Simulated assay, not measured.
Amino acid sequence: MTDIALTESLAQARERLHQALQKAGRPLNDATLLAVSKTKPAALIRQAWELGQREFGENYLQEALEKQVVLADLDDIVWHFIGPLQSNKTRSVAEHFDWMHSVDRLKIAKRLSEQRPPRLAPLNICLQVNISREASKSGVMPEDVMGLAREIAQLPHLCLRGLMAIPAPAKTLEAQREPLAALKQLLTSLQAALPQAPLDTLSMGMSDDLEAAVLEGATLVRLGTAIFGARGAA
C-alpha cells in the first residue's frame, strides 16, 4: 500500500465516520476510529500514526507484540487487543496493551487484573457480548452480562469501560440496528446498576454496519480493510 493510498483511505474512513455522526445528530468527536491493523506490517501502522491515527486494534498476540517492539518510540500510540485470548496468554495482554475488548469469562478477567503491572494504569476492559446468540461466536450471553460485569468491576487493576459485539450480518439498516440497539440497552442497564464504573464505551460497528452502529451510539468503530486494504496487501 502506498503512502498516497493510505492517506486517501484513512481520510475516507474518517469522513465516513463524520458523516454518520452528523446524520445521527452527534458531535464529530463522539466516536473514535479504531484502525484494525492485524496482519499489517509495522511500517504501515507507523504511516497511519504519522497521519494522526492513534488507536490500533490487533487480533493476533504474537504478531502484535513484535510490532510493538518496532514501534516502541511511538509513545502515544494506544493498543487495543480485540481477538480471542487463551488464559495462558493473558500476561502479555496485561503487560502490553491499553484495552482488551474480548473479555467474556471471569477467569480471564481475574488473570488480567492479577498480571497487570502496578506501574501501568488499569487495563480498560470491554465485555464481549454474543448479542445475536450465534453458536459460532464467542461472547457472554446478554442475560449473563450483569453478573459478570458486577464481578469484573471489583477487580483492582481493571477498568470496566463498556461492551463489545460483532452482530450477525444483516442486509438492511433496520435489521443491523436491532442487535446494536439491544447492546446499547444493556450498557444503559449497566450504567444504572454500576454508577461507580466509567461505563462509557460501545465497541461496535465495522465496514458493513458502521452507520447503524453510530446511530445506536457506538463510541469505538473498528475498521480494517477500509483503511489498510485487503488482508495480505502491504
Score class of each variant (00 low, 15 high):
M1S: 13
I4A: 15
L6S: 08
A13T: 13
E15A: 15
L17V: 09
H18G: 12
G25P: 08
R26C: 10
N29M: 00
N29E: 15
L33R: 02
L33D: 01
A42F: 11
A42P: 04
R46Y: 06
G52V: 12
G57Q: 05
E58K: 07
L61M: 10
E63L: 11
E66C: 06
V69G: 00
D76N: 12
W79F: 03
H80K: 02
I82L: 04
G83K: 01
L85W: 01
L85F: 02
Q86R: 03
S87Q: 07
N88I: 07
T90E: 01
T90K: 01
R91F: 05
H101M: 00
A109N: 02
Q115N: 00
P118F: 01
L123H: 03
L123G: 03
I125K: 00
C126N: 00
C126V: 01
L127H: 01
I131V: 11
S132Y: 12
R133C: 10
K137D: 07
K137P: 01
G139A: 06
V140I: 15
V145E: 03
M146E: 11
R150F: 05
A153H: 03
Q154C: 13
C159G: 09
L160G: 04
R161W: 03
I166P: 02
P167T: 12
P167R: 05
E174R: 12
A175L: 14
Q176M: 14
R177H: 09
R177G: 10
A182E: 15
Q185Y: 10
Q185K: 14
L186I: 13
L186W: 05
T188D: 15
T188A: 15
D200Y: 06
E211G: 06
A213H: 05
A213T: 12
G224H: 01
G229K: 07
A230V: 14
A234I: 12
